[in-house]
Write a protein that binds this DNA or RNA. Structure first.
Lengths: 144, 144
DNA sequence: ATTGAAAAGACCTCAAC
DNA sequence: GTTGAGGTCTTTTCAAT
């Protein structure tokens, strides 16, 4: 999908925080209907989504962590990334350059959630040959 | 700030995607005004924000990366995290457990953006004694 | 903190360009 | 793809509990 300058203008306004269509229309000198049509297009193309994000600092019984993994064979990278992305508690997965092949962001119960994720969920993904976990102990400007 | 069950119900509805107050009110058996007051409280306390997120896969000239750093002294962790969080292109920073002390998420220009960030921005933060970069080559369920 | 009613405002439909 | 006019739905205000 091709994004033009108007699309980017709308995106950058909405990325800073929700604004209604009329306000955006006034800022960009366009009609409300145009803004609405553009936003609809962007959402339907899965380019943009509008939703609530929480500050993980306030999540008392939840722990945010990164799980960095190595995969047995490079040709499996995409399928393994998809498999990990489907596991419970996984927020997102990326294929990475560098020391690790895949890096996942997980939100688990503070108590035994991470152990459970590693032993019961991630262990079931064949071809993931090692993992290293990083707890996010305190975050700045992080919303999930 | 203390969050009760109603707050969490509202958050989990809005996290899945924006819904209007009346719809949420009906789902939870409360009035529209109550939902609105709760959302206002959550936003003002910086617990929740509602905004647009973009799929980094569609950002043709931007590159998402993680920068994992070590800090000279543990007592500096929080101040260094704040300093890094203020650098341009930095989306978020976390103090981490494990091999690294700080992990930042950055969105840089594909061309020379990462080199420029490392040599011109991060190098200016004293006390950050090493860094390792991971390019996010392909992401699943990741929105920034 | 929650509610109901009324007013203000935002959003949607549709016909036209 | 964009627009304006009109109708509908959502949000805001505010007095009361």
């Amino acid at each position: 999908m091709e994004l033009d300058a108007t699309d980017w203008n709308i995106i950058s306004i909405l990325q800073a925080g929700y604004e209604n269509n009329n306000t955006i229309a006034r800022k960009l000198g366009l009609s409300e209907g145009t803004i609405r049509a553009r936003i609809k297009r962007l959402r339907e193309a899965n380019v943009m989504q509008i939703r609530a994000l929480i500050n993980p600092e306030v999540l008392d019984n939840k722990q945010l962590a990164l799980i960095a993994m190595r995969v047995a064979e490079s040709r499996l990278l995409e399928t393994k990334a998809e498999e990990v992305a489907r596991l419970p508690n996984v927020l997102s997965v990326s294929i990475a350059s560098g020391r690790y092949d895949l890096i996942a962001e997980v939100l688990v119960d503070s108590n035994r959630g991470l152990v459970r994720f590693l032993t019961e969920e991630l262990s079931g993904v064949e071809g993931v040959i090692s993992s290293e976990s990083f707890l996010m102990l305190k975050s700045y400007n992080k919303f999930v």
